[in-house]
Design a protein around this nucleic acid. Structure first.
Length: 330
DNA sequence: CATCGATGTTGAG
DNA sequence: TCAACCTCGATGG
């Protein structure tokens, strides 16, 4: 259930631990047997993340496209090289734990893996936050790790395992097909030039009758925003979700683009969808500890607005739950 | 144990 | 506009 920040974090994991290595590929679940057979034995040459999609290039000009959709996740296990620019090393990426972090961040010693940055080591596979007090389990030394549940695709190096489960899309593409897919996507702040991305977004969102609340979720308009960031961005800019794109002042559209760029960087660095800036240290600590305290309006239906006290509204927009403050976002 | 819901997208009608 | 798809943690009895 990732938004764009999770996909970039996953791509970094692949960049660190798979690019430049030969892999074994399999589909324990059986639903990607043919694709896995094609990839088996090849070397991973490159990884790209655009919006909510990730693309892995294997030698022989074969690309793997993965879209996690609503339930997808990658589980990493084995000897993980920590990327010092992100907050954790191994565990599940894509789905979130109880704290709302998109990764389990505890290594085999039960300590935050930040303590082991740059130190390749054996780590527990399939770590869940809820298990953090149980200590080491017997499967710690099993290699490769036992398959648990429905694994669409397993990628294995000598020392690292990545299990893909529940993706909306998992398919092989030619280079041309990858270009076609990416060309249809709106700008991703971590991919395109900042100024170009801003112009593209303003051009595609402005002038449309479509409500801004839908435009922000439209992956051909802007990439990577999901239901949480959508609600929070609208609130941060005091925008009524029903405002047609063409009625949103251009400077506000530009501010939205820049704000998304800002929030995305925070999300990639922390693994959390932190959308409340400028908190005092105590409030920030609380926000990072509990996902209930991390957002302005998301998942706060009926609760008082943090700014004006008005009850937060919940309405359905294109079958997704939309939370907003009818007073602040009048 | 059954049921629900979720940070998403596609395609039929 | 709506159902379908994919998986699993949370929730209720």
């Amino acid at each position: 259930m990732p938004e764009g920040h999770s996909v970039h974090r996953i791509a970094r994991q692949f960049d660190r631990n798979f690019v430049g290595r030969r892999i074994r590929a399999s589909s324990p679940q059986g639903r990607f047997v043919d694709g896995a057979a094609v990839l088996d034995g090849r070397e991973v040459e490159q990884v790209r993340a655009v919006g909510k999609q990730m693309f892995l290039l294997f030698d022989g000009e074969t690309w793997l496209r993965v879209h996690l959709g609503m339930y997808g996740a990658w589980d990493f296990a084995g000897e993980i090289v920590v990327d010092p620019t992100i907050a954790s090393a191994n565990g599940r990426m894509g789905q979130t734990n109880q704290r709302g972090t998109d990764l389990a961040v505890f290594d085999s010693a039960g300590e935050n893996s930040l303590a082991s940055i740059g130190a390749p080591r054996r780590a527990r596979g399939h770590v869940r936050m809820s298990e953090q007090t149980t200590g080491l389990d017997e499967s710690d030394d099993a290699w490769p790790p036992p398959v648990v549940g429905q694994v669409r695709l397993r990628l294995l190096t000598e020392v690292t395992c990545a299990d893909l489960r529940g993706p909306t899309a998992c398919e092989l593409l030619t280079p041309d097909e990858v270009i076609t897919v990416i060309s249809k996507l709106g700008p991703d702040p971590l991919v395109v030039d900042a100024a170009e991305g801003e112009e593209t977004f303003v051009t595609r969102a402005g002038g449309k009758r479509t409500p801004i609340g839908l435009l922000l979720m439209d992956q051909t308009v802007i990439s990577g925003i999901g239901n949480v960031y959508r609600a929070e961005l609208l609130f941060r800019h005091r925008l009524n979700p029903h405002t047609p794109g063409r009625d949103v002042p251009q400077e506000v559209l530009r501010a939205l683009w820049r704000d998304w760029s800002h929030l995305l960087v925070i999300g990639v660095e922390t693994g959390q969808m932190m959308t409340m800036d400028d908190l005092d240290p105590e409030a920030y600590r609380r926000a990072m500890a509990s996902r209930d305290d991390r957002h302005w309006v998301y998942h706060r239906a009926g609760l008082p607005c943090r700014v004006c006290g008005t009850h937060i509204l919940l309405e359905e927009m294109a079958h997704r739950k939309l939370y907003w403050c009818p007073s602040c976002q009048a």
